[in-house]
Amino acid sequence: MIEGIDPAKVPRHVGCVMDGNGRWAEQFGLPRTEGHAAGEQALLDTVYGALDLGISWLTVYAFSTENWRRPSDEVRFLMNFNRGLLRRRRDELNDLGVRIRFIGRRNWRVPRSVLREMDSAEALTKENTTLTLTMAFNYGGRAEIVDAVRDIVAQGYRPSQVNDSVISAHLYQPEMPDPDLVIRTSGEYRISNFLLWQLAYSELVFVDEYWPDFRREHLFEAVKLYQGRSRRYGGVKEQRSR
């Protein structure tokens, strides 16, 4: 096991806000798109790190509902890049026992060619059980809650029937456990509309490195910080009698 990490206390589910690609590129005088390309290795190394630790679920923020506001050439690059990433890496991930899943709106804004690659990756890896890699793509936490409420209303629930469990059951991926740990890179201290419902009691770790520089060692350090915290879920830690 990794030195300094208690294998009995490894988080079941880790989320990553992969931030800082554009700024990473700009510091080297490169186009912002080069930062997104460089982030691919960071993602793969983080997946390998999650496998090393025995993490069961890894969810990464790949493209938000707000990212459509970026320059059109950057958006176009991201669509093509994510499509190419799935083609390049799905067999490798499948061989590792990784199940690929997606959460987000699969609407008219996402090119059909990208949707086909998403469907293909999910179909290829659907039986895998070692790690579930969920990509939040065309995703927003508020949009997910809105879509859940719309489904609940459409199914005719009475107000008195709506509770936490009902809302959770209508989220994009109801079987996904809430994240134990969420990591955000680039030194920003925000969650930026990521898994708003699910983050109610997640531990948050913010790291200064831009996403292209993130590696499994940074994941290990974040898990060590997580293991040093006390999770009370609104209660108090039980005191031992003397």
Rank of each mutant, 00 (worst) to 15 (best):
L53V: 07
N193R: 09
P177N: 01
Y226E: 05
Q227R: 10
W197D: 12
N80V: 06
T132M: 11
E209N: 12
D52A: 02
E175W: 06
D164M: 10
P11D: 03
S72G: 02
G15N: 01
G104W: 12
M176S: 05
D19I: 01
N82A: 02
Y189A: 08
L199C: 08
G156I: 01
H218F: 01
S64L: 00
V47W: 00
M1D: 14
M79L: 07
N94D: 15
L78C: 04
M79H: 12
R142A: 01
M79C: 01
H218I: 00
F206D: 10
V14Q: 00
V153R: 02
S113N: 12
S120I: 10
S56I: 00
I2L: 03
L86I: 09
V17Q: 03
E221L: 03
T33K: 15
G22W: 13
R229V: 06
V60E: 01
K224H: 02
L93W: 06
L196G: 03
V98D: 13
R89Y: 08
L85N: 08
N21F: 03
I100S: 11
R70I: 09
L115T: 05
Q173L: 15
A62I: 09
W108F: 15
M135S: 13
R142P: 06
E3R: 14
A154V: 04
V98Y: 14
L225C: 11
A8P: 12
L86T: 04
